[in-house]
Amino acid sequence: MTLGTAPIGYDLSLCIPNLKAKGKESALAEMVSAAHLAGAIREPDLLLELLRVRERVGSTALGKGVAIPSARSVTVLAPRLVLGRTARGIEWGAADGHPVTLIFMALAPGEWREEAFHGLIARAAAVARLQRNRHRLLSAPSPEAVAEVLRGASA
């Protein structure tokens, strides 16, 4: 089983172009809820609590308006990237002090090894690192356009 190299589909139901949340914890909750509704996870309460604990261990903000909260759990059915976007920005404890406008939530099943899990996070980070990609993701007019940008950026 080549878990580490499994392709990550960009499921449109896992893209939230306009997060309603105004804070970090509510943004995590909104994104976990979307993943649950899309059938990507079970037991959303457990996953949310894990993400909250992870944030307390250290901020997952990378700077430049990007955060990559992540969780590896048996409650995750298959590897997923959930993308949340917010124009107003959310305080995420970034080292550069910038509020976060792009949130890539990386979710992996519990049986995944750490290397594979970090590979998933690295893919999101690679997309987010380029200013051109961030700009395209922030200005994409629809979830379809966001998915297209992600596909193109990670090809």
Partner: peptide
């Protein structure tokens, strides 16, 4: 799982390289 991820030296090094604090 999270404890192992944030305490194992190799794993921690990867996280730091990614710019993620733990």
């Amino acid at each position: 799982l999270l404890t192992r991820e944030t305490t194992d030296p190799a794993s921690l090094a990867r996280l730091k390289k990614l710019g993620l604090a733990a």
